[in-house]
Structure formats: C-alpha cells, structure tokens
Design a protein around this nucleic acid. Structure first.
Length: 279
DNA sequence: CATCATGTTACACG
DNA sequence: GCGTGTAACATGAT
C-alpha cells in the first residue's frame, strides 16, 4: 500500500537517525533472498557493509540511501514493506526479512533498521547509478518541481486509456497508487473511466492541483494507515480517516449525499461519486 | 473454502 | 505500438 506519502513519511522518519551512520552489518534472512535484486545476496551485503550513509532521497515510491562508496541502496516497499528503526536489544518482528545494523552512536538510540514485509514483494538493490535501480520508463516524481500542470497536460493528451489507468501508470508520473488516484479523481470531479486524452485543459489543471493537494495533505497526516503500513518508528498514519471515496462504497458522499460506487478499472477496485464526478 | 487486497511486471490477445 | 485482461509473486483478513 505504500504510495508516495507513506514512502516520504518513512524517509523523513529514518533520515535524522541514519545520516552519518556506518553500516556494520547487513543481513537478508534465509528464504527471503528474492528481495535482493543484485545478482547475489553476498554482492549486495558486501557493497553495504562498511559504508557510511551520506543522505536519503525518494523518487516516486522508491527510497534511496546514498552510500560513501558512491553506490546507492534502493528500496521499494511494494505492498506491505516497512523500514523500522529498532534498538539492538529488541527482537525482530515476525515478518522481518532483512536488516541493517549500524555502528552505535552516542546520540541515537537505534542501531537496527528492520525490513518487515508480510507479503515479501519488496525489493533491495545496490547500484552505482540511481537510474539503474528505478523502472526504466519512470515519469517525473509527483511532488518534484519538474512535474508541472503543463507536463501533466501534455502526457495525458497522449494517452487513450482511462484517467484512472493513466494516473496509476508510473511512467505518467511517479508516486500515485490506487487509494490516492481515487481521491484525486474525486477532488478534480473527474469520472475515473474518462479517457485521458479527452480531459480539457482546465480539468487537467484541476487534476494537477488535486494531485499536489492530496499528496501534501496525506503527508501532513503522516501517510495512510491502510493495512500493515507503519512509519520508521512503527506507528501507523492517519490519512485513511479522511478519504472521500476510497473504502466508502455504499456510503453517502460527504459533498452531495449520493451513494459512493465501487467498480473495477484495469483490475483495480475503483471508488467514485456518480454525481460529483463526470465523464 | 472462496474472495479480495495496497504494487509491479510479464504475457497473450485484439 | 497501444490498451486491456489475466496471472503471478505470498500472505492475511473476512
């Protein structure tokens, strides 16, 4: 479930505790080697151990850790992954798949970064160039300054698929997932089945504003608390308590009172208000 | 027991 | 090439 706000919330929680720390050990537990995208686990751990973490970053739903060697560790949480800070003495959770151990620091109570992942879809990758660790055709980050209303308009014009599908596609823009796409379409007043290339300039501008507003608001609330999501301190977020349509099928629209509907688009559960959102 | 679920990729088909 | 549907990945919740 982690979408851009959850990934960014994780990054912000980790950042102050990781900066300048040296990785003394890295482990991927037996049976979970698949999370490692490097050619083998030993190569990945060898490239992590002994490195200082110089910075953190995020691109779409990818977390990026800059290492003193010049390499970067790139983590994708996929459906149920979480990076959680722990004390050296605390026991790993039931779903811990990997961990980093950090050299102890007088100012920081955490020596462990656990990678917990119930469904085991998450990935780790150590690469020399960040681009090599991202999907090849990834679009601009949804909150970055190079993503503008104009760039959204031009990319939406080129697609004939539904707007729901276009916004979920990480090559259109990076960071949105199923929950926030439904919320964004509601805010912009657009039926999620509407064809991307039939959206007017004015509506696209509203869509752009809705994307920024939805993501920033979710960030203010510490990400959504759907399913297993927890931040770097193991705490859930609260953004789902404020959804207009997601998870509200059969309930009244807060704006107009109509019953929120749930349909399937490109195989994904899609929630919308038939009165507030137009084709 | 059957169905559904946040993300992503691969593949078949029209 | 494009869009869509489906399966797959692994697991828990209902």
């Amino acid at each position: 479930m982690p979408e851009l706000p959850e990934v960014e919330t994780t990054r912000r929680g980790l950042h102050p505790h990781l900066i300048g720390r040296v990785i003394s050990d890295a482990k991927i537990y037996s049976g979970f080697e698949r999370l490692c995208l490097n050619t083998d686990v030993k190569e990945l751990t060898d490239r992590l151990i002994g490195q200082r973490i110089e910075g953190t970053d995020r691109y779409g739903k990818y977390l990026i850790f800059w290492l003193s060697s010049g390499d970067s560790l790139i983590v994708h949480l996929r459906m149920t992954g979480a990076l959680v800070l722990r004390n050296i003495s605390s026991l790993g959770g039931k779903y811990e798949r990997a961990r980093l151990t950090l050299e102890s620091s007088p100012n920081c109570p955490f020596e462990i970064v656990s990678f917990d992942d119930v469904r085991r879809f998450g990935t780790w990758n150590v690469v020399n160039h960040v681009r090599d660790g991202l999907a090849r055709d990834i679009g601009p980050d949804a909150l970055a300054s190079d993503f503008t209303a104009d760039s959204l308009i031009s990319v939406l014009r080129q697609k004939t698929c539904t707007i729901k599908s276009a916004l979920l596609d990480q090559s259109t823009l990076a960071g949105l997932g199923n929950i926030y796409v439904d919320e964004i379409c509601f805010l912009a007043g657009i039926d999620p089945r509407k064809r991307s290339n039939t959206i007017s300039r004015k509506k696209s501008e509203q869509l752009f504003t809705a994307i920024r507003d939805t993501l920033n608001k979710a960030l203010d609330q510490g990400g959504s608390s759907f399913s297993d999501y927890v931040n770097a301190h193991g705490m859930p977020g609260g953004a789902l308590d404020h959804c207009n349509v997601y998870g509200r099928a059969g309930m009244e629209c807060y704006r107009c009172g109509q019953t929120i509907k749930k349909i399937k688009i490109v195989g994904r559960g899609t929630h919308y208000c038939p009165k507030c959102q137009h084709r």
